[in-house]
Computed example of a mutant assay.
Amino acid sequence: MNRPLSSSLWLLLAAALLVVALLPFDGTLSQTAQALPGGVVAFNKRITDFGTFAWMIYGSGSIVIVAYILHRVSRSEGFSSKSKTGWRLALYFLVTIGSASIVVHLAKLIIGRARPELFAEYGAHSLSFFSGHDWVFQSFPSGHSAAVGSFFGAFSMLAPRLRIVFVIGALAIGISRVIVGAHYPSDVAAGLLVGLWTALMTAFFFARKNWLFRLDEAGWPRPKNSFQPKPLA
């Protein structure tokens, strides 16, 4: 296993430990977030549904993706280059967002964690394995957070200069899920982890194929358009 991929596994482990570290505080943080001033809660209710997989695929999120693809295609020279850029970008978004969706929905089904609305009855750490077909037992991990994690994660891999903007966007939607009482903090952290991880792993795969990404000198995937030609000696 190459060093960057091994390092990415350590990052995954560290992120998983963060999720575990949040568990003891889930109940307190959830109740505190839901008790924030009404204006704060109302604002988060307005923005929270921007994090659904349906919004990413069928709503305004798809318009953003298509606009980005068209922008990249317009900068390519020649029909062959435009065609390859277009379908590879579409495939990257599809694989990243689709993989995150599959993973998070499978985890919901297996784990069956009760949502915060059942806090008084079940507490913050109630699990009903394979009860995830019922919405109120689909708390872990957060699907909204996985969706925005994969969406903004894909863009952060393709446009690393704007990575901080994409991270803030993902965090904003994730935090909104706690404030509106749909998820516990550890649910959100796990969902973001799933989404970001699929974006990174898909980028590694594409870099191996020399699609959209290349491995830099340290072995990490970087967008091919970010590499500058070496000056002539």
Rank of each mutant, 00 (worst) to 15 (best):
A16K: 02
A15Q: 07
L109M: 12
A90W: 00
S176P: 07
T202W: 06
T28Q: 14
H105G: 00
V136A: 14
A170R: 04
A199P: 11
P24I: 08
S99A: 09
T52W: 06
A120L: 11
L36W: 06
L12K: 05
L11C: 10
A159M: 15
S81E: 13
G181E: 02
L200I: 11
F166P: 04
A189M: 14
T198G: 07
S150F: 09
G149A: 09
K108S: 03
S131G: 12
I164G: 07
R222G: 00
D49W: 10
Q228T: 15
L106I: 11
A203C: 05
G39D: 10
V95Y: 08
L196T: 09
E217C: 01
V148W: 11
L22E: 09
F205A: 14
A182L: 05
A233Q: 12
G174E: 01
A203S: 08
R222I: 08
V103G: 08
A90Y: 00
S126Q: 12
A21F: 11
A154Y: 10
L17Q: 04
G27T: 13
L9R: 13
L5G: 01
P223I: 02
S81L: 00
M56K: 12
R163Q: 13
W220G: 01
G181D: 01
L12W: 14
K45V: 04
W135N: 15
F43V: 14
M157H: 05
I179N: 09
V167D: 07
P141I: 05
W220A: 07
M56E: 13
V103C: 05
E117G: 06
G27V: 06
L91P: 08
Q138L: 00
G98K: 13
A16H: 03
A207M: 04
R163L: 00
S139K: 12
V103Q: 09
I164V: 11
R113H: 02
I175E: 09
L106N: 13
R161S: 07
A107R: 00
V180W: 06
S145G: 08
P37K: 03
I175Q: 04
G149M: 09
V40A: 10
I65Q: 09
V103H: 11
D26V: 02
F155E: 06
A170M: 08
I179A: 03
W211Q: 08
Q228N: 08
G149C: 06
S6P: 01
L12G: 12
W55S: 12
D26M: 06
H125N: 02
Q228V: 15
I69G: 01
L200N: 10
S126A: 14
F79H: 04
A207K: 12
S186N: 09
I179L: 03
P231T: 08
D49V: 07
G86R: 01
V66M: 05
R222T: 06
L212Q: 15
V66P: 02
L212S: 14
P160R: 12
F166A: 05
K108W: 10
F205H: 10
I47F: 09
Q34H: 03
S6T: 13
I57H: 10
R208I: 01
L215N: 09
W220D: 06
A124S: 14
P185V: 01
L109K: 14
A33R: 04
V41W: 12
L5S: 05
F166G: 01
F119W: 13
E217Y: 03
V66E: 02
R115N: 00
N44P: 11
F129K: 03
P229D: 04
V66H: 02
A233V: 08
K82Y: 00
F205D: 11
P231W: 07
I102L: 14
G169T: 03
